[in-house]
Simulated assay, not measured.
Amino acid sequence: MDIIAFVAGLIVGIVVVSIAVEFAWKKSVPEKTCKLTKKWNLNELRNALIVAEKLHITPPSDAKVVVAAPTPLAKNARENPSVIGNFVIGLNKAYIFAGEIKEGQIAVVTSDEDILKELRDMFYEFYKVKEKAVSYVPKKGRVRIRGVVRAVFPYRDGYLMRLSYEGGIVGVLLKEKMDVEGRRVEVEGEVLEYPFINPYNITVLD
């Protein structure tokens, strides 16, 4: 009887352990590292790295930004027309956006280390590419220059357009204010006294 009881107890023990292991296996699920959200806040990310085809919100002051096309809210961003995609990387999470970065845009938030590493690598590949020189500004004479408008503000009897290009910054004299901050333009005109240009024609390129 003792042997029978021992064997029966052993069998019951094995069955109980098997059930417990199976139950634990069913309850054990992979850690969730991604989810969809519309409630994101870039200011939560310290030293954010931002890649955007177009940026429609003001980035955090400590962020590094690279864009395919300039906008008024991305005045200090580095430009690289090869940029594809819209994502923001923080220290331990990232937002991958379904479209252009703007309020209400749906995003995937992820904390997966492999994804974060790949996104950082992509950011620095885009960020290290400098904007190619597209024009040369002489000290005097006729000029045609392309660049990005950094600011338009009152100056003397009119306005001054602060235009940045690969070689530096010039001032384009305007009779009337133009709402073109952050946009790429082409200016044809005359250099009166470097760095001031009297324009004949201004074309908005984007």
Rank of each mutant, 00 (worst) to 15 (best):
K177A: 13
R162P: 08
Y136A: 02
V137L: 01
S111W: 08
L116T: 01
I57H: 11
Y124V: 04
S111A: 09
F6H: 10
G167Y: 06
S111K: 13
F126T: 08
E113R: 14
E53C: 07
R150M: 10
K117T: 11
E125V: 10
Y124N: 03
G104M: 03
K139T: 06
S111Q: 12
T110Y: 10
N41P: 04
L49D: 05
T37W: 00
S111M: 07
P30N: 05
I197Q: 02
I145A: 00
L42M: 09
L160D: 14
I202W: 03
I11Y: 12
D112I: 03
L36E: 15
P138M: 13
I11D: 14
W40R: 02
S111Y: 15
S111P: 14
I57T: 14
L42F: 15
V137G: 01
V67C: 14
G147E: 01
V185G: 00
A24E: 15
S111T: 06
A77F: 02
K130F: 06
I14G: 04
R156N: 01
K39E: 13
Y200R: 09
E193G: 02
H56R: 13
L192S: 06
G13T: 08
F87S: 07
V204C: 03
S135R: 06
E22L: 10
A74F: 09
E22P: 00
T33N: 08
D62F: 15
M161W: 02
T33Q: 01
L91H: 05
K32Q: 08
D121A: 09
S61K: 03
D112R: 09
Y124G: 03
W25K: 11
S82R: 13
N198K: 08
K38C: 13
R184Y: 07
V204F: 07
V65N: 13
I106C: 15
M122G: 08
S28I: 15
Y124Q: 02
K64G: 14
S18P: 12
E176S: 11
L163F: 01
V66L: 06
L174E: 02
A74E: 09
K38N: 09
R120I: 12
K102R: 12
E190V: 15
D114I: 11
R144H: 00
V187R: 00
E53M: 08
P72T: 08
N198V: 13
V204Y: 00
A98I: 08
D157S: 13
K64I: 08
W40L: 05
L45K: 06
L174T: 00
P138G: 01
G9I: 08
S135H: 09
I19P: 12
T110V: 15
N80G: 05
G90E: 03
F97A: 11
T37R: 02
F6L: 15
K102D: 12
Y165N: 05
G182L: 00
E176I: 12
V191R: 04
S164W: 03
E181H: 00
V129Q: 10
P138I: 09
R120K: 04
T33A: 02
A24R: 15
R162A: 14
R150K: 10
V7F: 12
I106M: 11
D179F: 11
A133Q: 15
G90V: 03
I4N: 09
G141H: 01
R156E: 05
G189W: 00
G13M: 04
V51W: 06
